[in-house]
Simulated assay, not measured.
Amino acid sequence: MLNLERLRALHAVAETGSVAAAARDLHVTPSGISQQLNKLEREVGVPLLAPQGRGVRLTEAGWVLARRTGEVLSVLAQAEAEIASLQSEVTGRLRVGALVSPSRTVLPRAIAEIKQNHPRLEITFHEGESEELLPALIRRDLDIVVVDSWSTAPVELPDGISFIPVHDDVAVVALPASHPLADNKIVALSDLSDQAWATWTPGTDFHAFTVRMLRAQGFDPRIEYEVAEFPAQVEFVAQGLAVALIPRLAKVVPPEGVRMLDTIPPLGRSIYLAWRTDSDRPAVRAAVEALRRQFDALDGQPLNP
C-alpha cells in the first residue's frame, strides 16, 4: 500500500511545478519533500523525478501517479463531505478567500452570520486576487473563494470547480471636481490619455487590468501613484494629483472634491463564488448561502454625495 503523505508530496510537486513550492504549500521543508519522494520512488520501484536545470521534472511514471493521486484526494474529499453531511451540526474548519473589494464590505458580515448560525465552525479568512485564490482552491488550501471576471478579461474557471454568480459590479472613474469633465454624467476613457493615474502596485490583478484596459483605448497610462487601497487612491484624486478606476463594490465614499463617473466603454465584471465540486460539505453550503444573502443585500446607492 502506497503511503498517502508521500503521494500528496508528489501531487504537490506536479501542481506547483517545483519541490520548493510544494514544500511551501504543504508547510514542510524542501528536504522533507525530497525525502518523501525518495521513499516513494523506492516503494514503486521506478524513477518518478528527473533533473531539469536546477530543478526537477516528473517522469511519465511520475505524471501517471500524480494524476491518480489527484483522483484519490478527490474521492477522499467526497467521503469527508458525505460524512460531514450526516452530522446534525455544522462543525470543522472553513477556509474562505476573497478579493479586496468584497473583503471590505460583504465578507465580514457573511462570516459573522455563519459564526452566529454555526458557532462550532472554525473560520479563517485570506484576502487575495483571483489569480491567487483559484490555485489555492484547487490545491485545497481554501474551501470557498470569491473571485471576479471582467467583461474585458474573462476568468477561466478550471474543471472540478463549482461556481455561481452572485453580483454584477462596474468600475467607475474618479476625477477631481475641478477636472473639465467632472460635471459630465459619463466619460470616455480615451479622453483621459493625458492624465496621471493612481492604481494598485505592479503584479496585482487590478494594476494589470487598468493597464490593459487603457491600452485598449489607445494609450499607455502614466501611472504615477501605486497605492494598495482604493480609498487611498481616491485621496490622491481629491488632491488633484491623479484619476483612478474604482469598483463600485469597494464602497468608497468619495471625499469632497471627487466625482465618480461611469465610463465609455463600460467596465463591468461578474463576482462569483467558487468551491471544489468534490467538497460540497455542510460548511461550504452554509458559506454559499450566507454569502449569497449578503451580496443580495448590497444596495445600489451612488458613490457621488
Results as ranks from 00 to 15, higher is better:
K185F: 07
A171M: 15
H167N: 12
V170N: 07
D159R: 15
L181E: 03
P165W: 06
A188D: 05
S162I: 14
V172E: 15
V187C: 00
P180I: 07
I186Y: 02
L175W: 08
S190M: 02
P158L: 14
P154H: 09
P165C: 05
I186V: 10
W150D: 04
L175H: 05
K185H: 04
A188I: 01
S190E: 05
T152S: 14
V187A: 00
L181T: 02
D168F: 09
P158F: 13
N184R: 13
D183H: 10
S190A: 11
V155R: 05
L175S: 03
I161A: 02
D191E: 07
A171G: 15
V187P: 00
P158K: 08
V173H: 12
V170A: 14
F163L: 13
L175A: 04
L189W: 02
S190W: 01
P180D: 02
L157Q: 04
P176W: 10
N184Q: 10
I164T: 15
S178G: 08
N184W: 08
L175G: 01
I164P: 03
A174V: 06
D159V: 15
P165S: 10
E156I: 15
F163S: 13
P165T: 08
V172T: 11
V155G: 00
L175I: 07
A182Y: 01
G160N: 03
S190C: 01
V170P: 02
K185S: 04
P165F: 07
D159I: 15
L175R: 07
P176T: 06
V166T: 06
A174G: 06
L181V: 04
A177E: 12
H167I: 13
D169C: 13
D159G: 03
D169V: 12
D191C: 01
A182R: 01
V170M: 11
H179D: 06
A174L: 09
I164S: 13
V172L: 15
V172Y: 13
A177H: 06
A153S: 12
P165H: 07
F163H: 13
H179F: 06
L181P: 01
S178W: 09
W150V: 04
F163C: 03
V187S: 00
A171P: 04
P158M: 11
S151Y: 12
H179Q: 09
S162E: 11
F163T: 09
A177T: 05
L181G: 00
A182W: 02
A182M: 03
I186Q: 09
P180N: 04
A174I: 05
A171Q: 15
V155C: 02
L157R: 08
D159W: 13
D159C: 02
L157A: 03
W150H: 12
H167S: 10
F163K: 14
S162L: 11
D169R: 14
A188P: 00
P176Q: 11
F163N: 05
H179S: 02
A174W: 06
G160E: 02
V172F: 14
D168W: 09
L181Q: 04
I164C: 14
S162P: 01
L181C: 02
L175M: 07
D169F: 14
S151F: 13
W150A: 11
V155E: 08
L157T: 04
A177W: 07
S162R: 09
D191A: 05
V166E: 03
K185E: 08
V170G: 03
K185R: 11
D168M: 13
S178H: 07
L157C: 04
V155W: 05
K185Q: 08
A153P: 00
